[in-house]
Simulated scan of single mutants.
Amino acid sequence: MLQLTLLKTMILMGGLSFTTLAISSELVLVVHKDNPTSMLSRSQVIDLYMGKYVAFPDGSKAVPVDIENDLVIRTKFYDSLVGMSLARVNAYWSKVKFSGRARPPTQQKDEKAILAFVKQTENAIAYIHESSVTDDVKVVYRFYE
């Protein structure tokens, strides 16, 4: 009985960490199924989402997409990708936009809208839950690799 109570306490205390890991490890980056890019490295994804580069490795323009209405997923994405809070990412983009060097990712309201946008936009790249992947998109990056 004591072991069961201890186990329950450990699960409850570690629940937040487990949830954080589960959310970030379920996220994948997808592109249009006909996009010639088959895989991206972590540094390439960072460069695309933080405005350092605006093109895929083959030189075609990239259109990074953020989820607008799910701040939990958006926060986990940037924390997993660059280790920055959403507030820091927003501050970063405020500076970059002001300088005119780059534009922040376009936004779509939810995963359904993101999938529709990526299906219609051959050079879009977006993060979604792995369970939401359809035949219209192709996974080019997994956070747990």
Rank of each mutant, 00 (worst) to 15 (best):
Q3D: 07
N35P: 02
E145D: 10
S24Y: 03
H32M: 07
N69R: 12
S41F: 06
K119F: 01
E130A: 09
N35C: 15
A87M: 14
L71W: 05
V118W: 05
M50L: 15
I125P: 05
L115P: 01
A124R: 08
D34H: 12
I11Y: 03
G51F: 14
K76D: 03
D58Q: 10
F77D: 06
A91D: 15
F117G: 04
I73R: 09
E68V: 00
L81Q: 06
V82I: 15
L86T: 11
A62Q: 06
A126E: 03
A62P: 12
H129L: 09
V133P: 00
V45D: 10
D79V: 09
K112M: 02
M13D: 01
V118K: 03
T19K: 08
R42H: 14
G59F: 07
P36Q: 11
G15C: 00
K61M: 14
T106G: 08
V137W: 01
E122H: 09
G83P: 01
I67P: 03
L27C: 02
K119Y: 01
A102I: 14
T121W: 04
A55V: 15
P104N: 09
V72W: 07
T75R: 10
T37S: 14
N90L: 13
Y53S: 14
S85R: 07
F98T: 14
K138A: 10
A124Q: 06
D47P: 04
I67K: 02
E130Q: 07
G100R: 14
T134I: 05
A124N: 09
R88Q: 15
Q44G: 11
G15M: 03
E130T: 10
I128K: 01
K109M: 07
G59S: 10
F18H: 00
G59P: 11
F117C: 04
V133K: 02
I23D: 08
S99K: 15
G15V: 00
V54H: 11
F77S: 06
G51A: 14
Q120V: 00
K112Q: 11
S24C: 05
A22L: 10
A22C: 03
M1E: 04
D66H: 07
N90S: 13
A55G: 04
E111M: 05
P64F: 12
V140Y: 05
E68G: 02
D135W: 02
